[in-house]
């Protein structure tokens, strides 16, 4: 039963990705400028432009180009970058892993901390800790990510304390994680952007669960308070939080653009900004579809978590 549900979600996800690929393709078609011109520069002769257009299949009808591009995605051939002339896949592979490192570190910090702070907040409802946590998280939630980033830079690397580097300056070809200090600020910014939502959702669902009949029943069974929280309350609060976490993770995949730009971090966000400036259509297409895929995959995972933690979906109901 559950495998069928997951399969159905998977099929729906693929359908969504297909629609997204169409949208991305046509949106980039509308971008002004000629890729061949962009590659060869203003001084190129008509003959060379024509030859390159032929080579890049730019003269084919749109649907052929779409299908070729779609096929390319599946075979890992994302086309040729107009700016560098190299393959898009080679250009992006490093950038993707750099961004993934950032996202993973931020997620690994934000999710558990958010869940713990939210739970504790619910347990100390209306006391000092709870008020502080909800207040701070409300402020953080209402600040745009670049403001948080700028404040952190001012606080930790320029005006107040000079502890951390404010920009990432890894030599090309070397992995970002070889310079962990440079990772701190971008990660911290992402964590602070994402965590308020997790805290608030965890607190809200936890309060609801703590009021439920089965938590009261567990207490009336004489279950020690710690076990009441860990065994009876938290598992039920996690389902809705997983959805919020998924939305936040997906947001990070796109929101990372601003943060990478702010910290000059060599990830896909930075690559996207560069590609748009350079009219590098192939790269823009590739990154857009990658970010869309991240959204879909993360949401799919959240749905699976929701299904797995809910026995009503996992098992047949009473006959």
């Amino acid at each position: 039963m559950i495998s069928r549900m997951i399969l159905r979600r998977l099929v729906v996800s693929l359908g969504i990705l297909l629609v997204v690929s169409l949208l991305v393709f046509f949106a980039t078609l509308l971008l002004p400028g000629d890729p061949a011109q962009a590659i060869l520069g203003q001084q190129a002769t008509e003959d060379r432009l024509a030859a390159l257009r032929e080579q890049m299949n730019l003269n084919d009808p749109w649907w052929q180009r779409y299908l070729a591009w779609l096929g390319g995605i599946f075979t890992g051939n994302l086309g040729i970058s107009a700016a560098t002339g190299g393959s898009v896949a080679a250009l992006l592979s490093e950038r993707i892993s750099a961004s993934l490192v950032l996202l993973a570190v931020a997620g690994v910090i934000a999710i558990p901390v958010g869940i713990i702070v939210g739970t504790y907040s619910a347990l100390r409802r209306d006391r000092g800790f709870d008020r502080a946590a909800t207040g701070v998280s409300l402020v953080l939630a209402s600040l745009p990510e670049f403001v948080i980033g700028v404040v952190l830079i001012a606080l930790l690397s320029t005006t107040v304390f000079k502890l951390l580097p404010s920009v990432t300056m890894a030599p090309p070809g070397e992995a970002v994680w070889n310079y962990p200090l440079q990772l701190v600020l971008p990660t911290l910014t992402l964590v602070l952007v994402v965590i308020p939502y997790i805290i608030r959702m965890m607190r809200a669902t936890m309060l609801e669960v703590l009021d439920s009949g089965y938590v009261e029943m567990a207490r009336l069974k004489g279950v020690p308070e710690r076990q009441v929280i860990t065994r009876h309350a938290i598992p039920h609060a996690l389902g809705p939080v997983a959805q919020v976490v998924a939305i936040q993770l997906a947001w990070m995949a796109g929101g990372v653009v601003v943060i990478e730009f702010l910290f000059r971090y060599p990830g896909i966000g930075q690559a996207l900004v560069d590609a748009v400036t350079n009219r590098d259509v192939q790269v823009v297409q590739a990154i857009s579809i990658i970010i869309a895929a991240a959204y879909v995959v993360v949401n799919l995972l959240a749905d699976v978590v929701g299904m797995v933690t809910n026995p009503k979906l996992r098992t047949e109901s009473a006959a």
Partner: peptide
């Protein structure tokens, strides 16, 4: 309890 549907832990 009054309502076992609410008082039994649905996930256990």
């Amino acid at each position: 309890p009054q309502d076992p549907a609410l008082s039994l832990n649905p996930a256990q």
